[in-house]
Amino acid sequence: VTTYKLVINGKTLKGETTTKAVDAETAEKAFKQYANDNGVDAVWTYDDATKTFTVTEMV
């Protein structure tokens, strides 16, 4: 189990959160659900070296 981080650069929601998951795909599903629940529709990137997902909402 690995800890993954999500950085949110949204128009109305900004911040960071983490989740523990067995792999990046599982973490991504959890983070996308979190973003969807909070109304963030954005572009996703992932950095495997830092285990960090970044979501940037387009203006």
Score class of each variant (00 low, 15 high):
Y4P: 01
K32T: 05
D47S: 04
V55I: 13
M58N: 09
K5M: 06
Q33M: 08
D23S: 09
N9P: 05
E25N: 08
V40T: 05
Q33K: 12
T45A: 08
D37A: 13
A27C: 03
G10M: 15
K5Y: 10
A27T: 00
K5W: 08
T52Q: 03
V59L: 10
T17S: 09
D23F: 03
K14S: 13
V22K: 11
D47Y: 02
T2P: 07
K20H: 11
V55S: 03
Y4M: 00
V43E: 09
V40E: 05
T3E: 09
G15S: 13
A42G: 15
F53D: 00
E25Q: 11
D23P: 00
F31S: 00
L13W: 15
A21R: 02
L6F: 07
A35M: 15
T52P: 00
T56E: 07
V55D: 01
V43P: 04
L13V: 11
A35P: 02
A49S: 11
T19M: 14
T12F: 14
N36H: 14
D23M: 03
V22A: 09
T18S: 09
L13A: 05
Q33E: 09
E25S: 09
T45Q: 08
K32I: 09
D37Y: 12
F31H: 00
V22C: 10
D48Y: 05
K29V: 08
K32R: 14
A42F: 14
T12I: 12
E16R: 04
V40F: 15
A42S: 06
T12W: 15
D23L: 03
T19N: 03
K11L: 15
V59S: 11
T3L: 11
Y46K: 00
I8C: 13
D47I: 02
V7W: 03
T19Y: 14
A21W: 03
N9D: 09
T2M: 11
G39Q: 07
T2E: 12
A21V: 03
V43L: 09
E57G: 06
T50V: 04
V1E: 11
L6A: 03
K20C: 13
F53Q: 00
T12D: 12
V40P: 06
D47N: 08
V55K: 02
Y4V: 02
Y4G: 02
F53W: 04
K29E: 08
D37I: 14
E28M: 13
D37T: 12
F31L: 04
V1S: 08
G15M: 14
A49D: 10
L13T: 07
A30M: 10
T12L: 12
G15I: 15
Y34Q: 04
T17R: 14
E28L: 14
A30Q: 09
F31V: 01
K5I: 09
A49N: 10
D48K: 05
Y34I: 09
V7A: 03
E16S: 08
T56Y: 08
V40R: 06
T54L: 05
G15E: 14
T2H: 13
D41G: 06
F31T: 01
T19D: 02
T50H: 04
A24M: 13
T56K: 04
W44G: 00
E28K: 11
A21S: 04
T50D: 03
K11A: 14
D41S: 10
T2N: 10
N36L: 15
T56M: 07
Y4H: 01
G15L: 15
T45V: 09
T2Q: 11
T56F: 07
T2I: 12
Y34G: 02
E16Q: 08
G10A: 13
G39V: 14
N38S: 10
M58D: 12
K11F: 14
T19S: 04
A42Q: 09
M58A: 10
K29S: 06
I8E: 02
V40M: 11
V1I: 10
G15H: 15
T52S: 02
W44K: 00
K51L: 07
K51P: 00
F53V: 01
D41K: 09
E16T: 12
T45L: 07
T26H: 09
Y34N: 03
E28N: 03
T52L: 02
G10N: 07
A49I: 09
K14C: 15
V43F: 10
Y34T: 03
T3K: 05
K29M: 09
V55N: 01
A27W: 01
Q33C: 08
Y34A: 03
T56P: 02
D47G: 01
Q33H: 07
V1T: 10
E16C: 15
V40Y: 09
Y46S: 00
E16F: 11
E57N: 05
L13C: 15
K14I: 10
I8P: 01
A30N: 07
G10I: 15
T19H: 08
K5E: 02
T56R: 04
L13R: 03
T26P: 00
K5F: 11
K20L: 13
T2F: 12
T19F: 13
E16D: 06
K20F: 13
L6Q: 01
V43Q: 10
D23T: 05
V22T: 12
W44S: 00
A24H: 09
T54M: 06
A27Y: 01
V1Y: 12
F53N: 00
D23V: 02
K11C: 13
F31I: 02
K5T: 13
Y46F: 04
G15F: 15
T26M: 09
T54G: 01
W44N: 00
G10V: 15
E25T: 10
L13P: 04
G39C: 12
T56G: 06
D48R: 04
T52W: 01
L13Y: 15
T17E: 06
D48W: 05
T56A: 04
K20V: 13
L6G: 01
A42H: 08
V22H: 09
A21H: 03
T54I: 06
Y46I: 00
T2W: 11
V55L: 11
A42T: 06
K5P: 01
G39S: 07
D48N: 07
V55H: 03
D47A: 02
G15A: 14
W44F: 13
V55A: 15
E28C: 14
K20I: 12
N38G: 06
K5R: 12
E28F: 15
E57K: 05
D47E: 04
A49Q: 10
Y4C: 03
T3C: 13
Y46N: 00
A30P: 01
L6Y: 01
N36I: 15
G39H: 09
T45D: 09
T56W: 09
